[in-house]
Simulated scan of single mutants.
Amino acid sequence: MFMTNREIDREEFKKVMSWMRSHNRQGAVHSDGLRAGHKLGDSAENGGLVEYFFGKDGKLRLQHDKFVQFLRDLRDEMLSLEFAHYDYKVQGTISAKDFALTMVASADMKHLNKLLDRVDDLDNVPRLRNMRITIDEFKSFAELRRKLQSFSLALFSFGQVNGLLTRKDLQRAASQVCGISLTDNVIEIIFHLFDTNRDGSLSASEFVRVLQKRERDIAQPTEAGMLSFLSCCGDCRKTYSIARLLS
């Protein structure tokens, strides 16, 4: 929707938001603009996030690079908030079990119980029971989900060539194809969950299916999240940090 000069004005931006609202599942039901007990009125549409991008008078133009960086920062902060949810003691790390839960949380219901049993089984594996995952490891895995299409192609290619998908194959695919380094700790947790018959080979189809579902579940609320920003903009006038807009 950006113009040829890679800029967009306030009215164009608001049209995009309006289109997103009309195509959002909840927005389609609440066509009157009501959302979570609030009505999205003109004061909200012209406050907060819109004011941050376009200024109080609405005359600034949103540069493509600024918007892309905003989305990157937003995603990064959302990941930080998710990590902090599990790191409630502010240790700077989370348990292998909590990390495993974030990995399987979006699995289809018909597969979820089986995966949750594997998560619980982490307590019975000494080398995994006390393992801790850092925020950098957490974010690297999240970045891998974003590059899932190319990553999954690499995984299946490795599997076709070798007949097996070993730990080294998984690390090599992530590094060579996606430029992402997965630590040995992350690899061990993945294999505990997705090496279903414990033969040292990853069950790639199950692994990819769960990651795809997680990324889809993130993508849909992204539209809703942008609309929620607009809905709460009237309360976000003192500061425009992403954390403030998320609160």
Rank of each mutant, 00 (worst) to 15 (best):
L227N: 04
L182Y: 04
M1N: 07
K139F: 12
G47N: 02
M109Y: 04
L79G: 05
R172Y: 10
H30R: 04
D195Y: 08
G234M: 01
K39N: 04
D121E: 14
D76G: 05
P126W: 07
I133E: 01
R61V: 13
L165S: 04
L62S: 05
A174L: 06
A44M: 06
E7H: 00
N197R: 12
D217R: 15
D87N: 13
L227V: 07
L115M: 01
H23E: 06
R237N: 09
F83Y: 10
D108Y: 07
I218M: 05
K110P: 00
G179A: 12
S175D: 05
S175Q: 08
R118N: 12
F54W: 02
G159C: 10
G159S: 11
Q212M: 07
L71N: 12
A36N: 14
T196H: 02
V104P: 00
K15H: 10
H23P: 00
F2E: 01
S80A: 13
L230A: 05
G58L: 03
L81S: 10
L245F: 12
N130C: 03
V161S: 11
G33I: 06
L211Q: 09
L122P: 03
E77I: 15
L101I: 15
K114I: 01
K213E: 11
R75G: 03
A100M: 07
S241P: 12
T4W: 05
P221F: 10
E82N: 09
N130R: 09
A28R: 12
E206F: 01
L40H: 03
V210Q: 05
S150M: 10
L246S: 11
M103H: 09
D87T: 13
L101F: 11
S181F: 15
N197Y: 08
N24Q: 11
F13V: 06
C233W: 00
Y86G: 05
R167P: 00
E206K: 07
F194Y: 10
S203V: 03
F83D: 04
P221M: 09
E7M: 04
A36T: 09
D117A: 11
K39Y: 08
L115P: 01
M20Q: 06
K147N: 14
V208N: 08
D73V: 11
N46T: 04
K110N: 01
G163L: 14
L74S: 15
M1H: 08
D9I: 00
R118D: 11
R75H: 14
V119C: 00
M20D: 03
S80C: 13
A100N: 02
T93L: 07
L165E: 02
R244T: 08
D217F: 12
S150I: 14
D199C: 10
L155E: 05
Q91G: 14
A219H: 10
L128E: 08
Q63G: 04
E188V: 05
